[in-house]
């Protein structure tokens, strides 16, 4: 599944990195601890988090993740958006809390 399909099916808002919507998704990882993501996330994962600072992009980029979903309408800071656009790594936004969006992502990836 591509990031674009995830956006369409779950009604996510694309905040940045729109050129990367054709990235291929392979699984999902959820954590707000950066070292946990660094140590355990896999290439192609969706990353669901509430962290909005630039280091999120550094980790997502180094791990070659597919996209980031920010929960509860959280907004990334300018530096984060800038790097997302530079690297074509999309940051998506949902109004839902982590538990609810996680359930939807799980059902979608396993359907």
């Amino acid at each position: 599944m591509k990031v674009q399909e995830l956006v369409d099916k779950l009604g996510l808002k694309v905040l940045s990195g729109a050129n990367g919507l054709d990235r291929e998704i392979d699984g999902c990882y959820i954590s707000d601890l950066l070292s946990d993501v660094m140590g355990n996330a896999m290439e192609g994962n969706i990353w669901i988090t509430l962290q909005t600072h630039k280091n999120v992009m550094a980790v997502a980029s180094l791990k070659e993740m597919a996209c980031i979903i920010l929960v509860k309408n959280l907004v990334p800071n300018d530096e984060t958006i800038e790097q997302s656009n530079e690297e074509d790594l999309p940051i998506l936004q949902t109004s839902l809390p982590t538990y609810e969006i996680a359930g939807k992502v799980y059902n979608l990836l396993n359907s």
Binding site: D32, L34, S35, D36, M38, T49, Q51, V56
Partner: peptide, 12 residues
């Protein structure tokens, strides 16, 4: 608060 400092760095 930034999501660092979980004591996972050196073990990682």
């Amino acid at each position: 608060n930034m999501g660092f400092g979980a004591g996972m760095g050196l073990p990682n």
